[in-house]
Nucleic acid binder design. Structure first.
Lengths: 399, 399
DNA sequence: CCCATTAAGTCAAATTACTTGACTTAAAAC
DNA sequence: GTTTTAAGTCAAGTAATTTGACTTAATGGG
């Protein structure tokens, strides 16, 4: 007898799947384009006016869209644009980093409505899980105060933490995170919060954030270079976050800088905040580190300038590499570096190396500065459940 | 008035879309798993028995599946497995390379039923297009002789040629191909053959071939390193070929070997058949070059050994890089190198560099030898229209 | 040897959700 | 003031899945 678990197949779909897909397509269209009339939506989605009307009616009943003032535009009956209601859905994002954890609550549009951070005690999840749970509960409570229906409309909890996940012989400075990764975090959080829980690495979270509210909004193929304690790439390919066979795609920081180098130097040893801290002799666990390096960057500190120069050289190569491999619409630099530092890095990276991205008729710059905000990872973590709930490509068609 | 062309949205779907998706899911399941009963299909696709029955009936009427002998397996009524009919669909693949062009005709299962090759005259498409058209016509005629209904069941013509496409300042040795790329090839072929025409680069074609009949069969996340005149990566991500924003994803051969190198040496200058020909002082346009280097590899020629050693070092790094960036299930080495040479390269690449691919519980090797056959690119080109027609992920849900 | 059990597969009706085509409404153009 | 154009609604039609009862055909226990 054929073991049914051995049969590999994709899922079929039915009318509900069709309907869910169409709803998501419409929500996505409204998110990307802003308010649209039913007629516009019908043209854009290639559905009939009637179908669009039905779905809009349902979305309005569900409190996800509202009609705007009618618009006269030439001949014909004026149209009534519909806009997404920001308070139509909420999500909570949680970042677990090496020394700190952050939680934010966002609405459907990605606006932050509440947030809080806490230091993570040493010793991994055994000591930290309570801190995390309290942080989430606090933000959730704040959200409930600001938005009446938030509990009913919470679509999930997104978690972001540094990768890689489930790898043998990970880097030494990862030992803190390793304990977290062995811990049944998702199960615990799901059980204790009652929410759907999803996980991404920090670079992926940043890309998710950029896609929802940042430089990648409305783009389909983007690579986000996330400069944090390490360096990772968040990959948006065909409008979808790509996470690889085991969730570790984009760990570009572990890429060796050259084929021949016997010392096997990885990119993040030369271009990451960790390498900057090392270069400057700063303790990354100390309070106010972020502001400190922001100040150094603003005043163009010579030691920092040295690092920028070398890091920029390596990042220039990293950009060349991802352009060559992914052929994205643009590359976005984002992450936990202070904006002054990020701007210096971007400036130092020019001119970029030649690559296939030098093509005629580009409309976007090859390199874009994205969010430089310590909260962007938590924001992206929060964006993940919203994307999951409302993104038409998220396997929406399957049952 | 809002310009409808300015509105960006994904396409909605309807019952036909649903149905098409379910048909494709079933065909895909049969392709990956072999013959399955309706009950098995219902379980695997999460559709009802009745729906599966309806679709199977339709597929049988269309000549795409046939019932096999019934199978008794324990209690209950014996099941009737259904198998794909190889002659249910046909496609033609065309490879346009620098000095030669090849065409193959394949069936639904990827079996080659006819093939032919021809030298390409210098001067690009002006002189070459007639050669190509005659080649296609020849193969098409052969196919018609072997398979009665082939004309009715031809799903398309796939074209593969070296990339990158539409890039400024492409490599010098690409000038021959540049003329081809400027030529309205797809339009001409579509007009002259009356078939649906699709285009891939050669690495992508090889990956498509590996997925249909090779080492990537049934896998969802695979990188194929295609060693040809240059070197490229064919990317299968989430079961789908990824081709980037402008069709040039995977042009890894143009990746610079190190961040610092002022000479800006690209990978394919060190690890590609072009570099081997250069190293050996062989004219790549000469007849019998392929057999020649195969012979040299078989007899372990010292000059060739030198090249293998250096190329393997660089390929080892390339594997490390794609593992780090894509986190694939496996990396497949394939392409136009003779098998003896490919085996030497693979052997020389061990041990691989450490990477996130070193994870516990892997079932597949990190590195696999794929097809080493000059025809594999043409085969992959032919597989593309079949995939397009029968792959459930190929935007099947959209209208 | 018979009958209960199990599983494959069919039948016919119900349901869901999209489409169709005619119609209404409201504004601009002539 | 009439015509034209476009947005949007109404009601019936249609395609495709689901549902639940039924049929068929095998195994296995008593």
């Amino acid at each position: 007898m054929t073991d049914p678990r051995m049969i590999r197949a994709k899922s079929g779909t039915n009318h509900e799947g069709t309907s869910a897909h169409n709803r998501r397509v419409m929500i996505d269209a409204l998110r990307v384009n802003g308010a649209l009339s039913r007629a516009d939506l019908a043209r854009a989605t290639r559905l009939t006016k009637q179908t669009v009307s039905n779905i809009i009616e349902e979305l309005e009943r569900d409190g996800l869209v509202v009609p705007q003032a009618t618009v006269r535009k030439g001949r014909g009956q004026p149209s009534t644009p519909y806009a997404l209601v920001p308070t139509g859905a909420f999500a909570i994002g949680l970042q677990i980093d090496r020394y700190v954890t952050r939680a934010v609550a966002v609405d459907l549009m990605g606006t932050q409505l509440a947030r809080a951070e806490a230091d993570l005690p040493a010793g991994g999840p055994a000591n930290g899980i309570m801190v995390v749970l309290e942080l989430i509960a606090g933000v959730r409570g704040e959200l409930a105060k600001v938005a009446a229906e938030s509990e009913k409309r919470l679509v999930g909890l997104g978690v972001a933490m540094p990768g890689p996940f489930d790898v043998e012989g990970a880097d030494n400075d990862q030992w803190m995170m390793e304990a977290w990764q062995k811990f049944p975090l998702l199960e615990t959080l799901a059980a204790r919060t009652g929410l759907n829980v999803g996980l991404q690495n920090d670079a992926a979270a940043c890309a998710t954030a950029e896609r929802m509210v940042g430089a990648a909004h409305g783009l389909d193929n983007v690579v986000c270079l996330y400069l944090g304690y390490g360096i990772g790439a968040g990959l948006i390919l065909n409008s979808e976050l790509y996470s690889g066979a085991s969730g570790n795609a984009g760990e570009i920081g572990m890429a060796l800088l050259s084929a021949g180098d016997p010392k096997r130097t990885a990119l993040e040893h030369r271009a990451s905040l960790a390498s900057l801290y090392l270069h400057l002799g700063i303790d990354p666990a100390a309070q106010g580190v972020h502001d400190e390096i922001g100040r150094l960057a603003a005043e163009d500190n010579p030691r920092l300038r040295e690092w920028v120069s070398e890091a920029a050289g390596n990042l220039r190569w990293a950009v060349h590499l991802v352009e060559t491999i992914f052929d994205p619409q643009t590359v976005i630099v984002c992450g936990g570096a202070p904006e002054a530092l990020a701007r210096r890095l971007l400036a130092a990276m020019e001119p970029l190396l030649p690559s296939i991205a030098d093509r005629p008729g580009r409309s976007l710059p090859r390199l874009t500065l994205g969010m430089t905000d310590p909260w962007s990872v938590a924001l992206g973590a929060a964006a993940e459940p919203i994307g999951r709930a409302f993104d038409p490509r998220f396997c929406a068609i399957m049952k």
